[in-house]
Design a protein around this nucleic acid. Structure first.
Lengths: 140, 140
DNA sequence: TTTAGTTGTAACTTATCTCGTTACAACTAA
DNA sequence: TTAGTTGTAACGAGATAAGTTACAACTAAA
């Protein structure tokens, strides 16, 4: 199991917008060229980022723009925009209540699962688009 | 995207073994009853846990047993036994090296992704089977 | 030696998700 | 009016998940 590439593609998209939005029109075609995929894939992800309030898209004329400063966009924002599942783990639905373990497995595990997911999300929340942009500029 | 239920099922299995191995034979049929699924599903996961050195299975006669004390089995051990993917995130393969972002996206993101995954794994490594067993006994 | 219960595994089905593709209506500045 | 763009529907190929049936191989016990 892996997260879909939507997360890394969305991050790539936002880095491109942050880098180029003042210099040229950042269209789905332009982004598809940088990411090396199909413009429709890009447009779908642009739609998710737009729904999440992270970017704005100019209909007709084209082009995408950040709707917040890059310091206020975190990897967690991006992740939540493109991965809709609320819980990281798929729990088997109907353990047997007649078994002592089946009866208690949820109360034992639910909190732990939440802790694990929070650890991941906190880490994501610490990384901003502006930091990624700085790193990209250093490596250019 | 979610992890498969193999992880929660495997944890459920190990809790059952830890709880019952001295009282009765813990077979795939018994476990399938507690988890409420098919014995073949259970046998496949038992095989993964066995390959990972977490349990031992008696061929022919049947029954599964922990091969380490429950204090030495962590959620991370279980997770790695049943989810074979090395990286949590699927990175888009071939970003365009002619774009400044396409050229640098991997060097910018790879370390961050590793940090995020480590945060999750550290949390998993802190939770042992013996702790889950205690919690289960409290709630029985 | 036979038998009953069990494991290991192959094969198949159904459902869902991902990624890519083609196609086209609707929009907007020039 | 036109060219370029977005939004979206529809489709296909491939992967994965979860469940099911079937059966060979194994082992303790009768």
């Amino acid at each position: 199991m892996q997260f879909s590439s939507r997360f890394t593609i969305a991050t790539h998209i936002l880095l491109c917008i942050a880098m180029f939005e003042n210099e040229q029109k950042v269209t789905s075609n332009f982004l598809a060229g940088s990411i090396n995929t199909n413009p429709v894939i890009i447009r779908n992800i642009l739609g998710l980022l737009s729904s999440a309030g992270i970017i704005e898209i100019k209909a007709g004329i084209g082009g995408a723009f950040l709707s917040k400063p890059p310091e206020k966009i975190t990897l967690l924002d991006i992740f939540k925009a493109v991965e809709k599942e609320e819980s990281l783990f798929h729990f088997h639905e109907s353990p047997n209540p007649q078994c002592p373990i089946g009866r208690t497995i949820h109360s034992v595990m639910d909190g732990k699962i939440e802790t694990i997911q929070s650890a991941m999300e906190n880490e994501m929340n610490n990384i901003t688009l502006s930091r990624l942009l700085e790193d990209a500029k250093k490596n250019m």
